[in-house]
Structure formats: structure tokens, C-alpha cells
Design a protein around this nucleic acid. Structure first.
Lengths: 236, 236
DNA sequence: GCCTGTTCTCAGGAAACTTCCAGAAAAAAC
DNA sequence: GTTTTTTCTGGAAGTTTCCTGAGAACAGGC
């Protein structure tokens, strides 16, 4: 999202898969977070002590011990750093839910990068009141209420599917800036999505159909050969 | 694009085709980058260690190992140098997509030199904040907003096709100097473009038609027998 | 289980864009 | 002033990109 999204925030990434560590590291650094990574539970505990992260992304399945044990261990040492668990969908979701007390939260793999970034902000907002990722986002004639997951266009409530909502949210956090279809795909869809950018076209089409009947002019502009742009102002 | 565009920046060029290495080397040196080249993966890994580049142009198809393996290898060694992948259009684009989320990016072959230079700047701006390739470029009565891909002439928004935009951008980054048609062709069009410089004349004509109705005098001056020049000031 | 909403793919058609050509216009050469 | 060279520009062909409807696959709620 914007360039100083995570300035001065330290994130510890714990996952045994190198590709996931890499993906998260580069994404979060790009978002201006300071990151460090660990591949197993022991290294993680070590890194928490030394690196003193503000938040921990913790894979539940680790080679030596599971994420819950890691959490239990550090909590017993008085560490209250919030944890964002990364878990496979089938990995006993209810188990995770029970453990996400306090500031903690979890996302299921495969996740989308936009979701990870959003969750991190949400957690930090709750626990530290760092950077108030506003729960209401208003751009031009459209406003998104993040808490209620509601979208209003010039006062009218619009019903969107989850993916439509995510796409709109991503575009509205980057208004007046051309977003390449690939860029959109990489942020809004899950990281292992197999298809191509045609789906972005489809969803832009869905969004337009729902939004544009209430606006003076289409809020999503096609920049042929480049991508799409959410406009906040009149085109002139 | 101006003469000190890449001062003190080290670029490692990795491609097995000598002609591509040459093309890139000459272009980037002209742009004041410091360059070094490698023809295969092993040499590349070696060069990364010794040369310590600020950015790597990496062909995906290499004789010994592919570009992803090279990246994986160096990342595992803690090297975070951003990579600009060079890839054939049909070469499993989705594979590359996952890798373009952090600082990395990619261009498909055949690329244009202007695009390579622009991407390098974009990457460096994001990762190192070296030399902010301004997102707004203003020369005389014309201003280009790179983020939104919009062009204003004396306040009026002008609608341009991708090629028109690229041509204008190239000319505006080199104002008040005569650009030979061939030079323009080499920078703005893809390197394997088959036609001749007549197309530059066509596009200059298109640009003039769109821009000049809002300016006091044509912004693109013909230097007969030589080329074209974008003027920033009145001609006198 | 059945229905509904959602996600994703695909393909046809429309629109925009690129490229080439050829005649007109302008400038330079003689 | 005429010829030659170079540039300009409209048109047409061919290609690419984008939009959208239709339908398959899937999940969740009732």
C-alpha cells in the first residue's frame, strides 16, 4: 500500500518454508516494516528475545515444535507481543480460534498479501494504537466502513461479495494511481492463485456494475495497456 | 534518462545472449550506471558476491540454472538485492508473478530500453530511496504524472495511447536536445521492432495533434535532417 | 439435499491501438 | 523556379486489449 505503511515496526516472520519467508519478508519490507525471519521454533524464541519484534507472524506447523508451544513458552516468560498465526485451512481451525485471545489473530494459508498487511495493521491498532488504519475510508463518492464491512456510494449501501470488497478496498487505499492487473492480483488474491489477470477484469466489471449506477462517472478508470485506477476526483 | 541518471549505482546484467548483454551494458553505461555482466547462473552468483550490485537484471532462462534458482540461492544467503527479471512473454507468467511482490519486478522480452531504465529507477526508488525519479515531470507547458499515467497541458488533461505516452515521456526526460529518430526508436520501441523510423514521424504527428491545440506553440520541434526536440521554453 | 451466492474460466464482439503506406506539404538543393 | 529530399498526415489493415455474458464448479445456509 502506501510507502510508509509500517515505518519503525518490527515484524518477526516464522515459517519453515523458505518461499513463504521470502514472500513475506519482501512484501513487508516493501511496506516499510523492519523484518527478521526464523525457520523453526527454537530460533524463533531466540529471535524474539534478541530482535524484540512488535508483532510475530507465526506458522502453526513448525519442524521442531508447533506455534502454540512457542506462544505458550514466550507468554510464560512475560512476553506479550501479539501473534498472527499462519495456519493451513484444515489445521483444526477451532483450535486456533481459542488461542487467539487478547491481541492475537490468525489467517489461513494460502493467504493474500493484502490480508496479511491489513491484519497486521488491525492488530497494531488494537494493541498499540500505532498508526490508525482508519476504520472508515472515504475516497470521492465512495466510503468503506471496515468494521461493518459496508460500502456506501453517495449514501446508498451497496452489497458486495468478499472478493469485490477486497478489490475495492485495495484500490481505494491506492487512489489516483494506476495499478497494474498483476499488482492487483498479487495483493488481493491468495498467493497460490493459479489463474491469470483475466479475473481482475471480471471483478472490475462486477464492481462497476454495482457502483456506477450511483455515481456521476465511473470510479474505476481503465488505463489501457497499463491497468486500472480508482479516481477520487472528477476527471475534468 | 538524463546524463547522471544512474550515478554510482551498480547493475549486474545476467543473460546468456551476448547481444542482449551488450545492448543493456551500453545503454546503462550511457545512463551512468556502473555495470558488470554474467552469462550464466554460476557466474552470476559469483559476481553478486564480488561486485555487490545494487540491482540485478536477471534473465529467467539461463544455460545452467534458471533465474529463480539463482534468486533463491542468493536470498538464502541473506542477499536482499532487488531483482528485475527478464522473461519471455509465454514463459509461465504466473511463476514470475509471485516473485514480483517485494522489491522485485519483471519485464517481458522483447522490452524497450526506456522501460528497463524506468523500472530500474522505480525499484531503486522503492527499495533505497536513491534519486527520486519524480512521479511528476514538468517541462514547459506540459506535465506528466507518472503514478496516474496522466498528462496535462496547461491544466487540460490529455488522453494518450501507451506508445504516445512513452514517446512523450522519453522526449520530456531529454528536453532541449535533439533526439535522432533512430535514438527514439531504440529507446521507446521494443528492441526487436522490425519497422523503420517512419513510425516515429507518425507518432510525433499524433502527439502534436493532441498537444498543440492547448499550447502557444508546438512543443515538439523538427530539426530537419536530424531529429526532434522537445522545447521547454519559448523558441524566441 | 437443494438452493443461492460466489468464484473462476472462457469466448465473442467491440473498441482502441499500432503499423504501414502513399500522397500532400514543406524545406532544401540546384 | 524547378527539382529533389524530407517530413507530415490521413486512411486502411491488422493486431491487441478490454468488456461482458454465460456457464461450470464449489461452498455455505437452510
Amino acid at each position: 500500500m502506501n510507502s510508509s505503511s509500517g515505518a519503525n515496526i518490527k515484524v518477526l516472520i516464522v515459517d519453515d518454508e523458505a518461499s513463504i519467508r521470502d514472500l513475506l519478508t519482501r512484501t513487508l519490507r516493501f511496506e516499510d516494516f523492519e523484518t527478521q525471519a526464523a525457520a523453526n521454533g527454537l530460533d524463533a524464541i531466540d529471535a524474539i528475545e534478541k530482535f524484540q519484534p512488535d508483532i510475530i507472524l507465526l506458522d502453526v506447523m513448525l519442524p521442531d515444535m508447533n506455534g502454540f508451544s512457542v506462544t505458550k513458552k514466550i507468554r510464560s516468560q512475560g512476553v506479550t507481543t501479539p501473534v498472527l498465526f499462519l495456519t493451513a485451512k484444515d489445521e483444526a481451525e477451532h483450535k486456533v480460534q481459542g488461542l487467539t485471545v487478547g491481541g492475537d489473530d490468525y489467517v489461513t494459508k494460502p493467504f493474500s498479501l493484502a490480508e496479511i498487511v491489513a491484519r497486521i495493521h488491525a492488530i497494531l491498532r488494537r494493541t498499540k494504537a500505532v498508526k490508525n488504519e482508519d476504520s472508515v475510508l472515504e475516497v470521492g463518492e465512495v466510503s468503506i466502513h471496515n468494521d461493518a464491512h459496508e460500502v456506501f456510494v453517495n449514501g446508498t449501501l451497496i452489497d458486495l461479495s468478499p472478493t469485490e470488497y477486497n478489490l475495492l478496498h485495495f484500490m481505494m487505499t491506492n487512489p489516483n494511481q494506476v495499478l497494474k492487473k498483476e499488482q492487483i492480483l498479487n495483493h488481493v488474491w491468495e498467493y497460490d492463485f493459479g489463474g491469470n489477470t483475466a479475473i481482475v477484469e471480471s471483478y472490475v466489471s462486477y464492481l462497476r456494475k454495482k457502483l456506477d449506477e450511483h455515481t456521476s462517472e465511473s470510479v474505476i478508470i481503465t488505463k489501457r495497456g497499463v491497468g486500472y485506477m480508482f479516481r477520487s476526483t472528477k476527471k475534468a
